[in-house]
Structures are given as C-alpha cells and as structure tokens.
C-alpha cells in the first residue's frame, strides 16, 4: 500500500508531533509514503479569498504530481484534505476551468487529467487498510478512556466535494477509530463545528468562545481528551484553551487535544516521547497516566 504523501505546512511547522507520530504509525502499519516535496500550500481557503485561481492552480499542480506517480494522495490535515478535494471536485466538474489551469501549468510540464484520489489518513485507515487489520496493531487497549471526536470543518463540508454522497459513513470514522483502540467515543454536539482557528487573528473573542464551548462541553460530558484529525483545530483548541476557558468559563485548560495518530500510537505501544505529547500546551501528563 503506497501513497503520495502530503503532510501539509502545519505538520511541518506548528505541530511537528503530528508528523512524527504519523510516520511512526505508518511504519508500524507498513504503509509506504512518498512525499510530494515540490507541492505548495493548499491555500487553506484563505488564499482562495483573495486569489482563487492561484489557489486552485497550486492544488491542481499537486494533484498532477501524484497523477504522474500514479499514486493517490494521503493528507494528515482536515483543511488540506478539504481544500484539495474542493479543487479536485471543481476541475472535474468544470472541464473548461481545468483546461485554463492546465494551460498555466504547461510550462512546468504538468497536465492534470482528473484521476487523482485525495484521502485523509483517517479515511485510508477505514477504507483501504481496514479496521479489523488495524485492531491487530492495538496491543495496548485504551479501555476506560473517553474521547470526544473533533473532525474539523473541511473534513465534513462541503459534503458533495468530499464524497459523502457515496460514502455517508465517513462522518462516523473518527468514532470507529476511537472504538477500535478500545476507548469510548462520546457523542458531543460540537464534533462537526468550527474550532475558531480561521478567525483567531481576526476576531479572537469569537475564536476563544468556540474553543471554550467545545473543550468545556466535552469535559462536562466526561471526555478525558479530545481527538482530532486536523492540526489547525489542534493549534487553536490546545494553544488557546487556557485563555479561552479563563475568559469564558472562568476555569482552567484541562482537556488534552490529541492528534489522531498520537492516539493510535499510544495504543500501539509506541514510546510517548516519540510522538511529542510533551510538546502540547495543555498538559497531557494526567491523561497519559490513566492509560
């Protein structure tokens, strides 16, 4: 099993622990990856506000790189997944637009034909690897722990671009992974909501209210930690939880925000050091001790 690897900017920048834990997990599972080192940032939807054509062109360029290698793309980030899927969906639907973009890419020698599949690690685990096979690797069951799943907007919307019409079960995958490590997934209302990251630098008050609502309500519902497939959600929910909770609920940051591969690594018995739990802003100590 081999994929064209697109780790995304944040896994290489703000959350290196996501990259290290993902690579550790992939190694155990013997899933091969070949990084698209020339690929650019997806634009995260932000670039698209100002320059949609540039955003789409960079993404189609990435899709074309994988197409050349005849490999599907693996992402680690809900936002990367979403924005790449949207670009893919758009050019598959609008052949004229694809032609225009291919024209721009011609000089560099790329021509995208529309055959690349883009899949988040979460989807690959359930759809390609298989939960049964996966469970065999979870030697250290996390039973007794409760996780609140937090998907990240771009992984679930727009559902049309993300293949939910054919695979509506994609909105339950994170719970399935949580259950397969032996933990309990709690049903909490914010799981498909916005983490607030996109407006962190624009309207911090709102952003922090979102962080406080999600982490606070998950905690109230008995979560030991929140697990997310999106490093951007992690940045906000982890990095700003202290301030958010203080300002809005008058309490303290108490909910570790775990990257999905970190949770799996823990169940695989991989050393906690290797997966960077100490790098988190919200302390993970108490949580790790519960295992």
């Amino acid at each position: 099993m081999k994929f064209a690897f697109y780790p995304g900017c944040v896994a290489r920048g703000g959350t290196p622990e996501l990259l290290s834990s993902s690579l550790a997990v992939l190694e155990k599972l013997e899933i091969e990856v070949e990084e698209l080192t020339k690929a650019g940032c997806t634009g995260a939807g932000v670039l698209q506000e100002k320059n949609p054509l540039l955003g789409d062109t960079i993404n189609v360029r990435t899709l074309a790189m994988a197409e050349e290698k005849k490999l599907p793309i693996m992402t680690l980030c809900s936002t990367c997944q979403g924005v790449l899927s949207q670009a893919n969906h758009k050019v598959k639907k609008d052949k004229d637009y694809l032609k225009k973009i291919n024209e721009l890419l011609k000089e560099e020698g790329y021509e995208y034909k529309g055959t690349t599949d883009v899949k988040h690690l979460l989807w690959i685990l359930v759809e390609d690897y298989g939960l049964d096979k996966l469970k065999d690797h979870f030697i250290k069951k996390l039973s007794g722990l409760s996780f609140a799943p937090f998907y990240g907007c771009y992984m679930v919307r727009p559902s049309e671009a993300l293949g939910f019409d054919e695979k509506p079960e994609r909105q339950m995958y994170l719970e399935k992974i949580i259950e397969s490590v032996g933990a309990t997934a709690i049903e909490f209302p914010g799981k498909f909501s916005c983490c607030g990251f996109p407006v962190l630098f624009i309207n911090q008050t709102n952003s922090l209210k979102m962080v406080s609502n999600h982490t606070g309500s998950a905690k109230d519902l008995g979560a030991d930690a929140m697990v997310t497939p999106c490093p951007l959600c992690h940045l906000n929910l982890d990095g700003y939880q202290g301030k958010a909770r203080k300002n809005n609920r008058g309490d303290k940051a108490d909910l570790p925000i775990i990257h999905m591969p970190q949770m799996m690594a823990l169940a695989m018995g991989i050393e906690t050091k290797e997966i960077g739990l100490a790098r988190h802003i919200v302390s993970t100590e108490e949580f790790v001790n519960k295992i």
């Binding site: 939807g45 919307r157 727009p158 559902s159 916005c194 996109p198 407006v199 624009i202 979102m210």
Partner: peptide, 11 residues
Amino acid sequence: WDCTRCMQCVE
C-alpha cells in the same frame, strides 16, 4: 471578516 469559513451554511 467574522465568517470562519466553516461551510455550515453552504452545506
């Protein structure tokens, strides 16, 4: 500028 681009409305 206060929209978070969460796409709930699109959905």
